[in-house]
Design a binder for these strands. Structure first.
Lengths: 184, 184
DNA sequence: AAATATATAGAACGACCTTTCTATTTTTAA
DNA sequence: TTAAAAATAGAAAGGTCGTTCTATATATTT
């Protein structure tokens, strides 16, 4: 394993464990063990656990947006519906038990750190995304639509914990269709 | 402070701190300090931190349902809309930053304990509640409606972290009205 | 008032955490 | 091949955690 492969492995293992057991529930010892690297190799790449968490979040955010971009083709369907469908596929693939960013916001709230900023930034970006594809005449309606769809995705993610990604996605899609139905 | 007052104080302080900083982010030391009781007083009432967490969750669930019951009058409006409104008021009062039960599920997942059961039970109860007030002819539609409204409440709770309880509630209400509009 | 039960502060325990240090081994470059 | 650089395992430091213990003080009950 080369130097950069080790860094990648650390990020991959850390993300998986953090998602499964929470940021505070996983120790660095467990991470280096599962990544098969030495203690100092981790500190060679990441100055601290906080920095590791930050990079894990950035990496996950990048993967999320890459996936969404790859799924959205801007064809016949409404881009709103496509976004909801794409998000649903992401849930099935990688978010089978709730949202990692909300957990980061919750776990590191108050502590004056960069982690909360990164996690919040991801959510803001989601809202901005819907605002961009909601470019319609009535500005109030545009804002409303963007917020409503953001709420829908957040709801679907939460529901995943309860009924699984399959059903959560289906229900969010049903609602989404009713929302666009009227504005088409 | 009587014995039972101390227990109440411990539960109150613990709930507030757990909600603000997370279950793993708060130590018993901080709790007994803010509750103004001795170390052993806590262990006199709660066998362990886990038991304390369990009772905090039970207490919060009771307060949630009491509040919902007090707000729902079964008058002219749809009971669905009333539930969404009541949940919105709860968010403004006590859930300004996300859902405590989802965090409990996430933080204590895998560990074979009672905590996850309690938190999950609360969510199931929410779903059952909507299933009960959705008693309509078409069973498929009934199931769908119940799930959709549960998703809406979950979405509103999540959005609170992002845009505050006021807006989150408003957007969830707008969606809710569209959902009942068609089935009335 | 005496006896019993409960609350108190504070120390102590062992476990685990993040981070640093050290001495040895492996890889890379000259 | 030899010198420099990087990675290794493992110990150790310094901290916090949940929990238990102890001895003193405070309430409650008889």
């Amino acid at each position: 394993m080369s130097r950069s492969e080790k860094k990648d492995m650390l990020l991959k293992v850390a993300e998986q464990l953090f998602y499964e057991y929470g940021f505070r529930g996983v120790g660095l010892k467990q991470i280096i063990k599962e990544a098969n690297v030495a203690n100092m190799t981790l500190y060679n790449h990441f100055a601290s656990k906080e920095k590791l968490v930050e990079e894990v979040l950035k990496q996950r955010e990048n993967r999320y947006w890459s996936y969404l971009d790859s799924q959205i083709t801007f064809d016949s369907d409404s881009p709103f519906i496509q976004a909801v469908e794409a998000h649903g596929c992401w849930l099935k693939k990688e978010s089978y038990k709730g949202d990692m960013f909300l957990r980061a916001i919750a776990d590191y709230a108050g502590a004056d750190n960069e982690i909360e900023n990164i996690a919040r930034g991801h959510k803001i970006k989601l809202l901005n995304y819907f605002q961009k594809i909601a470019q319609i005449k009535d500005e109030k309606m545009e804002q409303d639509l963007a917020h409503q769809f953001t709420l829908l995705l957040e709801g679907a993610t939460s529901m995943t914990t309860l009924v699984g990604a399959e059903k959560a996605t289906a229900y969010s899609l049903e609602i989404a269709r009713k929302l666009v139905e009227e504005t088409d």
